[in-house]
Design a protein around this nucleic acid. Sequence first.
RNA 1: GGACGAUUAGCUCAGUUGGUUAGAGCGUCUCGUUUACACCGAGAAGGCCGCAGGUUCGAAUCCUGCAUCGUCCACCA
Length: 696
Amino acid sequence: MNPVNDKLLKPYDPKATEGRIYKIWEDSGLFNPDKLPKKPKAKSYCVMLPPPNVTGSLHMGHAMNATIQDILIRKKRMEGYKTLWLPGTDHAGIATQNVVEKQLKKDGLTRHDIGKEKFIEKIWEWKEKYGDIILSQLKKLGASCDWSRTRFTMDKEYAKAVEAAFLHYHKKGLIYQGDRVVNWCVRCQTSLSDLELEYENIKGKLWYIKYPLKTAGYIIVATTRPETMLGDSAVAVNPKDKRYKDLIGKIVLLPIINREIPIIADKTIEMEFGTGAVKVTPAHDIADFEIGEKHKLSVYKVINQFGKMDLKDLDTKCPLGHLVSKWDGLKTKDAREKIIAELEKQNLIEKIDDYDLRISKCYRCGNIIEPQISKQWFLKMSGLAEIAKKAVKNKKIKFYPKRWEKVYLDWLDNVKDWCVSRQIWWGHKIPLEGTNDVLDTWFSSALWPFATLGWPDKNAKDLKEFYPTQTLSTARDIINLWVARMIFSGSEFTGKEPFSEIIIHPTILTKDGKRMSKSLGTGIDPMILIASHGADATRFGLIFQTMGGQDIHFSEDHIVAGKKFCNKIWNAARFVLERSAKEDINKKKLSKQDKKILRELDKVKKTINKNIDEYKFGHAIRALHEFFWHEFCDKYIEYAKEQKNKNTDAILSRVLVESLKLLHPFMPFITEEIWSFVPGKHKIGKLLIIEKWTRK
RNA sequence: GGACGAUUAGCUCAGUUGGUUAGAGCGUCUCGUUUACACCGAGAAGGCCGCAGGUUCGAAUCCUGCAUCGUCCACCA
């Protein structure tokens, strides 16, 4: 028995290996580009980790995304690039605030009870305690990030960048304040952008209500929200609608309170919906607000920021307003009942239909959105959107797979001004006098690729060295929320696109195609997979399924296959190292089988390089698996058992060494561990992590 | 209402510009404990490649239509 072999116990045990190896890497400092072996002409290669929320824990999507980035970084590091994979976390405004609010609630407190200052203090405490959990999970996965450069979107330096960015826009005249109807969460007490909404289909009703004309007769409008009718400013019809042609310009008396409102024509009205006549409530509906602006309608706010009826002013504003003052302060749901009852009493309900409608909900707390008119800060988007579109149209930035370009461009084609203010407490304060608002979390995330490298200091060392970055890998649901905004921000502030290639990785679903969700109990915790099969096996299984398609119906079977593969690699290594060759391959004495395995090795090298370059990770790992298991183990090693000569041993060593290098980006722990047993003559340094990668 | 994607073995999926008997992993079955590995080896079964047309000497692959499932977008109130 070879003494080396005594240490390579069977089977492979990831638990005894991974923690130890990770520590060796960290101690070596090689995750830090400044500590890599100096190479005079080394190019830089930089990947920015999409900063996970401090509230988060690692889910399957993170695990896959991190593995993809780690593969890229590890390969480039071995190729001699000066590689930086910069990690960090996002302060995640609303999400984090909500988590800490929930914690307070356990003690029977709200954030208002303890006040703003104290509350923010609490959040910082929470962040210090739990905020880095997700980063430590990434370490378990093997992520080779430069932890010495870890950033947080609210650390001091980052705050400077955010302020500089906002003031830049402001100075340029792109920031303005306006009263607009925004998506308002009555629980979080803040505005939300369209991208921060979730939708739910519910069974509702469609009420057909008679609005009496001032002269005689009536017009019937259909609505799903009768409680907003007290705020109506008009009834709108399509100008092409023959049914109502003669009524345009006439006055109707708003039921119950008798406010006089006009019938107007607007081409956005669908003739097919309901009766073709629609009530217009500018204060509580985004579309109605726009119609209201166009037609210069009055705005009557009848629901307050807490989602309760606000009817105090109505008695001064309309003839019978005093009749509804008794409903002031009611929840909208209760007000609806009162209003319907009153309308029925007055015989103004034509009919009630069942109706499937879609309601908007807050993406963080799930409460129903109550559109509200309020004063907000906006960033003008038209010019910035053009910049973002150009970057992709001019091929400065490419999407993989390409089809996501359309999603991106379509959104930018129709983008509205960005409401950047939020009324929560946790976030970057808007750097202007007289505002207590904070910025949308995504305003700061948009600066990630350069704010983390030292911007706004244009001479910052890291910024000069690593910006623009190369590859961004992320999930498809933040293409608009985040990616688009990074692109125009990067171009606006640095004059350069922040990255050149974007990988949109597949979404991981359950085996039967359902969304993985913690609350539904359909999620799988990657940490559990790592604990039971090992990080390498988990990475293998994930990447094995990453074929570039749209969704992955996740199957743990592939992780199990990864575990078996680890064992295969381990045992093949035991066999080869036992016969470890002392001499080089004699090329003149190659048998048919020798030639074949060397040919296959060259072939698989080319395939792996090509596949990784094209971001076809699943194809790469499948090719490696096929080569190592079937070509090398099943055929060549079996053949070698019969051929006890030095040349065969030399070839065994050569193929093992090359395979370990090729496998390393995908399965870093086991390959590094085996590497420590490989005789020195095959090595440049000690660690596989910086061993020379060969393309041919 | 638009857009995009998917549909291939029991399950999860490959199949590059159309070219012999359509592949992998897992599962199933048979045989095998020869000192790398039973987390293994040898072998086998199992597919009208969603449906219907079309182009072609030839189609899982290209075209048209349909069906089913999924995702995203949209101010049908």
